[in-house]
Each structure stands twice: as structure tokens, then as C-alpha cells.
Design a binder for these strands. Structure first.
Lengths: 112, 112
DNA sequence: AGGCTAGTACGACATCCGTCGTACTACTAG
DNA sequence: CTAGTAGTACGACGGATGTCGTACTAGCCT
């Protein structure tokens, strides 16, 4: 079984977390995990990118400490590290996820 | 008097805001503005970068809608658009600024 | 007017980042 | 054992980003 490195709770860095969640694809992953559906395999996210790119994004999220990944057979189960993030950066994850909802709900993406 | 373009409150984009605040230099600007000292000229921030780079960072923040800039003589006064941000992305700015404090207070930057 | 101060414009440069395809590994199911 | 599925490694590539220096403009002060 391969091993996946995760930063400890105390090692979480704001820079990494914010950079990780700056990308729309990665924010979408986090949002989907937050929306009640934890422990999803990477393939469960219908991302608009190739498999390699997908791997890349999941790695960024894991190394930033935003998600936790562990193998289950040939698949990887992903979950949000909501508790750790809350402990280290209270309200941050919540605010970003809520902001993502607001952003998606309004016609902000329009840029003709 | 030169004119500086700012996005309207409704036009604020999460992507832009998060990217803007992903950079340590820009986060530092926002933090300093939040710490009670509004309406500071660019030069009041002792940034560890050149003047041109400084201009660049202020522009990013302004175009993302994080700060408001207006000329006052030859200087520019900067202030946080805390109200607008709060209206569009409730809690987001607060959480990031608080996280920045936590991040600075703890030895997170250590990477031996 | 002339000099000073605050910031801008512009071009250059190195680096990082998101993206991809192909080839590979690890595990499961038959 | 073989075939299939899930994800990784690696290399490539183009575009964005942070940085700088130099030359410039706008406004203030004497």
C-alpha cells in the first residue's frame, strides 16, 4: 500500500491553503467534499481536465493540508480536513466555501 | 487628477480576491490596512520589493476589489474595501486576516 | 521655474503553474 | 493469470506571475 504524505495540523500554512483554493478546479473539489459527500474517489469528481491534471490538483490540495487522502484498494478516498483547518484557521474554510456558493450563484463569472 | 478603475461591489470575483490575497506581500498590505490604519500612502508600507513591484501589487489588489485607491496630491491613499467584501463574501476577509495573524504568530514559516 | 516626491509605464527576465499525453504501477475481479 | 480500473510519473509546453531597472508623469514646495 502506497503512502501519502500529509502535513500535520500545526504545519498548515496559510499561503499553501489560499493558493490551493485559488484555483477554480480545486475549489470545486473542496466544495463537492463539503457538500455532504466525504470519502469520494478522485474519479467521482467530474473535473473538466485530464487524469494527470486531476492527480496534480489533488496533490496540491493534499500537500496544502486541505484534504486527506488514503488508499482503498486501487482507489483513493478523499475527505476534507475541515476540523484541522478550523483549528488552525478558524472560519477560513467555511468562508471560502460560502463565498464559492455566492460566486457561483451570481453572474460574476460573466466576462464577455 | 488621474483616474483609477475599481470593480463595483457586485462585480467582485472570488477568484481574483483569493489570488490577490494568496501573495504574502499583498496580504501584508491588507493586514496593515486592517490594523486600524486606513488611508495610507503606498510608501507607508515598508514592502521588501522595489517601487515598480509595489505598484504592481497595489494594482492587483485594487483590480480585485480588495482595496480602494484615490489620489491625494502626488500620493495615493489606500483603504480596505471591507464593507463591499463583507457584503459579497461574508466573513471571508475577516477569516483571511485572522488566519494571517495566526500564521504569523506561530512558527509555521519554519521549513528546515 | 526648478527641484523633489510618489507613483506609473514599459520592457525584460526567470520562475511557477495548469495543462496535456504517454507510459507506468498497484490493486481487483474473473 | 489476465484484463481492467484508478491513479502516478515524467516530460513538454504555453501562458501567467513576481521581480527588477530605467525612464517617465503628476503634483507639491520653496
Amino acid at each position: 500500500m502506497r503512502i501519502l504524505a500529509h502535513p500535520d495540523r500545526g504545519e498548515l500554512q496559510l499561503d499553501a491553503v489560499l493558493s490551493a483554493l485559488s484555483d477554480p478546479v480545486r475549489r470545486r473539489i473542496a466544495s463537492q467534499l463539503a457538500d455532504g459527500l466525504d470519502d469520494q474517489a478522485c474519479i467521482a469528481f467530474q473535473l473538466p481536465v485530464s487524469k494527470s491534471t486531476s492527480t496534480h490538483h489533488f496533490r496540491i490540495l493534499r500537500e496544502a493540508g486541505v484534504i486527506e487522502q488514503h488508499y482503498r484498494g486501487t482507489a483513493i478516498l478523499n475527505s476534507l480536513r475541515a476540523t484541522d483547518l478550523k483549528a488552525r484557521f478558524p472560519g477560513l474554510l467555511q468562508a471560502i466555501l460560502q463565498a464559492a456558493r455566492n460566486d457561483a450563484a451570481s453572474p460574476t463569472t460573466e466576462r464577455p
